[in-house]
């Protein structure tokens, strides 16, 4: 029983952080109709921003996050406005040029970071990193609990932004019908640039929340891009509720898989979900939740 409880706690807490990372990808997919393959790589950049602030100024990632998020927002905004968007008009034999471009941008960032910080593993370890609450035989990692709390606050904040403000509604409208949004006076380029920035800022938040409990090296991005993609497919494109539930389900599945199946096949669990959703629930969880 303690084992089951512990497994669920681990999966749930991790799932919350996954959700924040994935929600950025789902937003970008919704509005721009492209999968941002560079998502994890840009998250990595944010983690290094936090890491640098930790080593130089001693700022905890929970605080450094509020520097990393605007940085990544800016990077995302400029990338979409002056790079990704323009490729739309370039004639090329390659399919999905914009998707490939996000990959290329991501890889460029990996190498830049590698030049600055080298390939070494880094982590932000403070005595606080190992603090735990204990319920009977089960332990709840305090930094993970806080990360989860902050993650949920961001998800809630984003949900309010998307449903209660004109800007948020414009994002959703652009995702649902681009031409109609233009008729309403929505500047689609501005919205997509801001959305890309917002998505990157959320990825930055996810990265910052991971930093106290995980570690860091320049190639850390790829598995997170894959996880975010699986969660996006699982949750359904462009849906915060979908990404949140997708993140929690995915975290739980990984955790249960590691305990009751085999810890060596965590990734397989993800891919099985990926396939099953594509085959049997192509709209993702969002379609199930809506109905």
């Amino acid at each position: 029983m303690a084992l089951f409880g512990q497994t669920i706690i681990c999966g749930f807490l991790m799932g919350g952080v996954y959700a924040v990372i994935a929600i950025g990808m789902t937003l970008i997919l919704g509005v721009m109709k492209i999968i941002n393959i560079g998502h994890g790589h840009l998250m990595m950049v944010a983690m290094y921003v936090c890491f640098a602030l930790f080593t130089s100024l001693g700022l905890h990632p929970y605080i450094a996050m509020f520097v990393a998020m605007p940085c990544l927002f800016g990077i995302g905004y400029l990338l979409q406005r002056y790079s990704i968007h323009r490729v739309r008009f370039v004639d090329t034999i390659l399919p999905q040029t914009q998707v490939l471009l996000t990959l290329a941008i991501g890889l460029v960032f990996v190498e830049i970071i590698r030049v600055i910080f080298k390939s070494d593993f880094r982590s932000v370890y403070t005595p606080f990193s190992s603090k735990c609450l204990y319920i009977g035989d089960m332990s709840i990692s305090l930094p993970q609990l806080i990360s989860f709390g902050i993650a949920m606050a961001f998800v809630a904040g984003l949900h309010i932004l998307l449903t209660r403000t004109d800007f948020g509604r414009s994002i959703r409208a652009t995702a649902q019908d681009l031409d109609a949004a233009k008729y309403m006076g929505v500047d689609a380029l501005r919205v997509s640039s801001l959305t890309f920035g917002l998505g990157m800022a959320l990825a930055a938040a996810g990265g910052a929340l991971l930093l106290p409990i995980f570690y860091l090296f320049p190639d850390i991005g790829v598995p997170f891009t894959i996880k975010a993609l699986i969660i996006t497919i699982l949750g359904g494109a462009g849906s915060t509720v979908g990404a949140l539930s997708g993140g929690l389900v995915f975290g739980m599945a990984e955790s249960l898989g590691a305990v009751y199946w085999a810890p060596g096949y965590k990734d397989v669990v993800g891919f099985v979900i990926f396939l099953l959703v594509l085959l049997f629930m192509p709209g993702g969880l969002k379609t199930v939740i809506k109905r």
Binding site: R169, R172, A173, Q176, D177, A180, A181, M184
Partner: peptide, 13 residues
């Protein structure tokens, strides 16, 4: 219309 938005939200748009 914006199919996944409510009637009210469509009007606000």
């Amino acid at each position: 219309l914006f199919p996944e938005m409510t009637v009210k939200e469509n009007l606000l748009m």
